[in-house]
Simulated scan of single mutants.
Amino acid sequence: MHAWEQIQLTLDYIEGHLEEEIDIQELAKLAALSPFYFQRLFSRLVKKPVAEYVKLRRLFKAAEMLPQSNRRILDIALQVGFRSHEHFTRAFKEAFAITPEEYRSHPQALNRMTKPELALHYTLIDEGVPLITDGTVLEVGRRRLAAPLCFVGVEKQMPVRFVEGLGTASGVDPLDALWRGLHEQKEAALGIPEDSEELGVSYPSRDTRYFTYFAGAKALSEKAVPGFTSWLLPQGEYIVCSFEAESFEALVMDALYKAQQYMFGVWLPRHGLQTEPFCAERYACHGPQTTSMEIWLKPL
């Protein structure tokens, strides 16, 4: 068994036992490693110490339960493994910058710790061959865009550390607010049908500490719209990563992160390919009913 497979066993075990006491000695035994080497390998592959990872996954489970239940917050805290209301509230606020009570009153998208699928770091798939892992189906192929496509929308500068920490519990997801703002103006201000195709694009900013994220809808024309930003998806050959998930939330919070990590960390380097400095996310619609999307990358 490869080292990453041993750690994946423990990740799967943790996911199924978040409501129980999780002992590092038992995890190390499951991985067939000494506790010392297990913790070193886990931190190296997951980028988090074991205890921190378990805490963040418990917080995510609690965040899922809070808006959907009238149960006492203390009962939810105890169910996911926290010792007290105070301990849970402190950890929740440190991770998400809001209290459990505030989140229950005003639920919003949280940037959280995604359960890693380490196979995506070590498995190279051929074009047109689907890879299925933990509820995510991913496939890579090539497409040609015969003519450029124009999108109009809004954009926001984001610190690079946001990308580096994507999938971790680091507060409210600011891109969710950007998309909500677009949807509020899409039909009324832009005259674009609600169900029209949408595009999210990440590209470098002049200040290397930041990148720019654009959220837009397919434009009715290429004419500039005052107060909005336009993005032209160039014509030409593209590498396209298509994937789907069980829900919209899983799609944009888990599957998208994993697909991007796979493409930039494994697939492109192993094929000796470099791409134009933008990553385009194509959606039929960036909304609750959507469970599939595509990443479009333009090779140099």
Rank of each mutant, 00 (worst) to 15 (best):
I239Q: 08
L233Q: 07
Q157Y: 09
E222K: 15
L178M: 05
G153L: 00
L182K: 05
A189C: 08
A189M: 14
W179V: 02
G171Y: 06
K223C: 04
F162H: 10
V201S: 07
G227D: 07
D176H: 12
A224T: 15
K156M: 14
P159A: 02
E198P: 02
G200D: 00
Y203C: 03
A217W: 06
S205M: 00
F211L: 11
Q157M: 10
R209N: 13
D176N: 15
V152T: 13
G191K: 09
C241F: 03
Y210P: 04
E164Q: 13
K218F: 10
E184V: 12
A219R: 08
V172S: 06
P159W: 04
Y203E: 01
A169C: 15
A188Q: 08
S170R: 11
D207M: 06
E198G: 09
L166W: 14
P204L: 04
L220P: 02
K218A: 09
P193C: 11
E155V: 05
E187P: 00
T229H: 12
Q235R: 15
S230P: 04
E198L: 11
E155N: 10
P174Q: 06
A215S: 07
G153H: 06
F228C: 07
C150T: 10
A188C: 03
V152N: 00
F162K: 02
E155Y: 08
G153K: 00
K156N: 01
E164F: 12
P226A: 11
E237K: 15
G153N: 09
A189V: 00
K218S: 11
R206L: 09
F228V: 05
Q185S: 12
P174Y: 03
F211M: 01
S221T: 14
W231L: 06
R209G: 03
G165Q: 10
S242Y: 08
T168V: 07
V201A: 07
V240F: 01
E222R: 14
P174H: 07
F151M: 04
I192Y: 03
Q157I: 01
F162I: 03
E198T: 05
H183N: 11
T229L: 03
E197A: 14
S230K: 12
L199M: 13
R209V: 01
L178H: 06
E155S: 13
E222T: 06
R180V: 10
L178Y: 06
C241L: 09
F228G: 05
E164R: 12
V225K: 11
